[in-house]
Amino acid sequence: MSAEPLLRVDGLTKHFPVRGGPLRRVVGHVRALDGVSFDVAPGETFGLAGESGSGKSTLARIVVGLETASGGRVRVGDVDDVRGGDRRAFGRVVQMVFQNPGSSLNPRRSIQATLELPLAIHGTFQGPIRARAAELLEMVELPRSFLGKHSHELSGGQKQRVAIARALAVQPQLLVLDEPTSALDVSVQAKVIELLQKLRDELSLTYLFISHDLSLMHAFCDRVGVLYLGQLAELGRADAVFRAPRHPYTRGLIASVPVVGEEEVALKAGLERITGEIPSAANVPSGCRFHTRCPAAEERCRHEDPEFTGDPSEQAVRCHVHSIV
């Protein structure tokens, strides 16, 4: 990658202590994230895929500063560490759209109050704030009459549009989308994705898109990373990863995509499904973390943790068997 990355995640680790016993002593750690590294270039849409429990939401929360990392670094724009820094200035670089439209808007506050909050706090917008709030609504293709409404009068898709407008009110460069459409009907989902694509082009936004929906990711993202038990299993251009997945986990995930069209059928040809449940992050398997479920596992996979091979801007994989030489 030639340009300076907008988001650089370097060896990111997050361990949650597990307490037990009568004295509530730390008896172990949940390793939600264990050395995750990737870059996102300005204007790029980076997708992060994984099952629930893989750590993808934790990563999103660390990137925006809602949680602190146990180790490693996250650099957004030219801010190295949110703590101790200017929370508001940081907010003008990165914002987040949450997963659950039902709880992302305050039921007691009008849409107008919701949208005017960021404008009032940051004071970056010169001119009447109410007019700007109406403009933001138009940007997400909602009528300005919605200003007077409350969240219970809105559908899930409309709420999510308001949440996008609120995030964009401070004109951030990076938008973290934590499963923004997973709670929506499929038809509504498509419209929200279309809107996100339009906004990306018009405002030259950078997205960190977190989802478990691989077909959506294939269509929406430039590059993707596949997260398994707090580590990246595979990383690369969306097209390369989906056309020719190398890691058995990626292959298994793609094999599990419910088939709708010919495109998915083609993607799934010759891939074997994975079985079983994701192991607990409190008790991570030795060696390669995937060996307990891997159809191609060999003896060394049990003991040796594989290294990444390949070029992350094209395709890189963390697997002994399917390494890129």
């Binding site: 500063g65 987040m96 949450f98 992302s104 007691r108 919701t114 940051h122």
Partner: peptide, 26 residues
């Protein structure tokens, strides 16, 4: 833990705002 509380924090709202304008009305 509601998302609108976290969203307000991300937007840089002060603790007083979160407490009296986001939480108290509820």
């Amino acid at each position: 833990g509601e998302e609108y509380v976290e969203a307000a924090r991300l937007l840089g709202a002060r603790t007083a705002h979160v407490i009296f304008r986001e939480l108290l009305p509820n």
